[in-house]
Write a protein that binds this DNA or RNA. Sequence first.
RNA 1: GGGCGAGUAGCUCAGUUGGUUAGAGCGCCUGCCUUACACGCAGGAUGUCGGGGGUUCGAGUCCCUCCUCGCCCACCA
Length: 925
Amino acid sequence: MSTTQELHELPAQYDPGQTERAVYERWVAAGVFSADETRSKRNGGDRDPFVIIMPPPNVTSVLHMGHGLNNTVQDVIVRWRRMAGDEALWVPGTDHAGIATQNIIEKQLAAEGKTRFDLGREAFVERTIGFVRQTGGQILQQLRAIGASCDWNRTAYTLSPELSIAVREAFVQLHERGLIYRGHRVIHWCSRCLTSLSDEEAEHSEEMGTLYHIAYPIAGTKDKESLVVATTRAETMLGDVALAVHPDDERYTDLIGKSVLLPIANIEIPVIADDYVDPAFGTGVVKITPAHDPNDFEVGLRHKLPMPVIMAPDGTMANGVDAGSRVPPELLGVDRFEARERIVRTLEKSRQLKKVEPHQHAVRHCYRCDTVVEPRLSDQWFVKTEPLARPALQAVRDGTIRVLPKRWEAAYIHWMENLRDWNISRQLWWGHRIPVWYCEKCNRQIVSRTDVTACDKCGGSVRQDEDVLDTWFSSWLFPISTLGWPDKSAAPLVAFYPTDDLVTAPEILYLWVSRMIMAGYAFMDAAPFHTVYLHGTVRDTNHVKMSKSLGNGIDPLDVVASYGADALRYTVIAGMGMGADLVLDPKDLERSFAPGRNFATKMWNMGRFLLTNVGSAPVGSVDELRDTELTLADQWILGRLNATISECDAALGTARPADGNWAPEDRYSGLRLSEFAEAARRFVWNDVADWYLETTKGRIGTDGADSEVARAVLTHVFDYALRLLHPIMPFITETLWQRLPSPLAADRSEFLAIAPWPLPHPVAGNETDAMARFDLAREAVSAVRQIRSDYAIPPGKLIEAFVQSRANGGLFTDQARLIGQLGRATLKVGASPTDAAAAHAVLTDGSEVIVPLAGVVDLAKECGKLRGELEQLEAQLESLSKRLRNEGFTSRAPAAVVDSERKKEEEWTKRRELIAAKVIALCGG
RNA sequence: GGGCGAGUAGCUCAGUUGGUUAGAGCGCCUGCCUUACACGCAGGAUGUCGGGGGUUCGAGUCCCUCCUCGCCCACCA
């Protein structure tokens, strides 16, 4: 193949738009992303399985930067493990998202002037199914554009028939084990969504409210004696059934057992004593509203008080269960906040409003629509969480599961320890209907895996529970349900459960992650994964979370179109420290994404150089090269490659715990993706492109063996660089890799995506020495460039003398080695009698060396010698400068550089002398 | 109210166990269209590492304290 043809194949400009789609289609067509159960070691195969279950996005959602970040991270990890030889599986899926999806359809209906009740349940569900079928799941299509290497054959959906079986099974099993029960208590109620919420779905936010001090006249007193109560939710007073004081509060002791008159409702209610009351807060008197406050509910239970409900589900005032006619006619149907205003005004008029003061407090809001949540007494289904939490807590405590970054581990533990029972029933229509039937005739409650048509006892007709299950009750099963549970012998479940990493944002640690861990133990008796990786949030430059509604979002597909998926991925990975937020500028995509694109372009051009110069003829294997054949540069770049591989591996860490538990040294050290990206980038750009590739220019193309050596080494180094970068920038690396000349001893895979992950290769010759010597050469080159720049010397002019004398001196390497050795050591002297004559140096890598005392003393002398060499260097620089000045050049930066260097060096010398002196003093000379 | 994180160059951020002259990208300045790359190359400037105190031969890193911002948790009406 001729050079021109190859250049033709590799256009001067990399065009991601033209290549990415085709590359992706070839991967899919070749089944590169498909995992094979039979290859898993757990299923008789020869590979370790490595599995990530995708946090299922809402089925109606479209790709935003948050997804872009989340899925890029997962893809980087899964591609790394795929190359490392694991049977890698990434399971994609979507969540039916009960409330969120129902809200969308309700909004559509509202636009048509209708409510879901106008349609009826069946038609509403049909319509939603239709909507999901038409527009749902497009996010999974979009994920392909950013290169997500999911096994699309296993795409899951929480409301699919398979997963619905799992949901039912889980419900029935927990019910059989006594862990699901029907409870009558105060729950969080969203008056807009018309459903109950779990504790986690009712989110706190600090708000400025008003504390109203209201006087309740004491019954039977003539002169309007009263008890004053402080409340922020004045409207709930209509549901008051008592006033409570602390039993030991002397101010009120004689009032206990008496009655007060509830204003507006004009009902007599008792004054009771309960420990729950804090005498120090407000007036020390609390109104008890059992149906509309969880604490008051508990008080109500203890004192066997009635529990009148004074609000309708939609948040308007109404006489509900046990309310009689507490709500006066003029307030019936009035919204709760309006009612609050009116009641306050009424009390003001009757002079029963004693004080009004601003009061900051936390108010719970619906996590889907932000409506203020109303505590409300109702019947709901609950999961008893304590028995489920026990193993889930233990798993994180004992290192079966690690949480990265570490700080979230404490948050998880704290939350798990204080977990309350989980309300799983929702008064919605979109979701898994609760598998409970009630006999119309004998009132029997039937919990069943299959649909029930008649009572199994009396044959009476049955009706199914109206409620659906919390969305999270299906997604908490995702790691098991997507793999075939409840069939415990299903091949995917056997081969791939437990999974490995779970990658998500901290905001759903409690809502989802913790519950998956509980489900894993409850149904499979094993943790669902061993690593929870929590990444940050995507924010704009004002650190505001990106969102469509705020208009500060970036559409990942726009970025893909303008900069390419690789640029998007690189930016996301390189810009994100462990657990840190990712800040991007929605108004300046160029600033955010150009570095990634530029890096891709750099690689593209390296590829063009390589194809033009190395050509497509097969190259030799580097393993067969002898050290006598390798130049200093060859040895150096191979050494740098090894170092880079080690750096990348260290940043990525151990993929899985060795014996079921994380070893302390691995537990918090892995998945430092930005460091991985930086190590690879540094190598490719600063080492290969800036230095090594330049050294091959005079070699490749010449006749003789050295040209072949350079071809082999350059190709090898670039090949391995592409491998290291593939998880981050899969498209361009695959494209370039496909065109690399093949090594003579070739067992190359068809795709880079499944090519082996690099291992360090031993370099022929003395690697350390060669690297030091080449570094010296680089130092010399840099020094010359600096002089050139300072004196504005034209590119053509040579300054040979300096290079040579510098290279011969070997000053920098020796100096570096010396300072390095002492610098990293902590000296412990005379720790034991046998140590008396030696200094014990503990190096920072944990290894220890014994330095004979004489050696330490020599170090001090050595410092003096170095100072001499430094002076020699200065002299050389000075004479060079003089010569240049004589030739008519003038320095543009007559640098005090040497001067400051000497100062710093002297400082270090002093320090070393101090240490040495101390050593001598301690050891008695 | 409790807990956690952050504050490092103009901007966005790295900096594992204290140790060679605190780094990267972008931006900025100077010079280069040097036949892979101007989405580039070479050179350069910019930091009291939030303030103060302490431990140490040595602190961005450890301890104390204060300030600013952010996050999580929370049944004080």
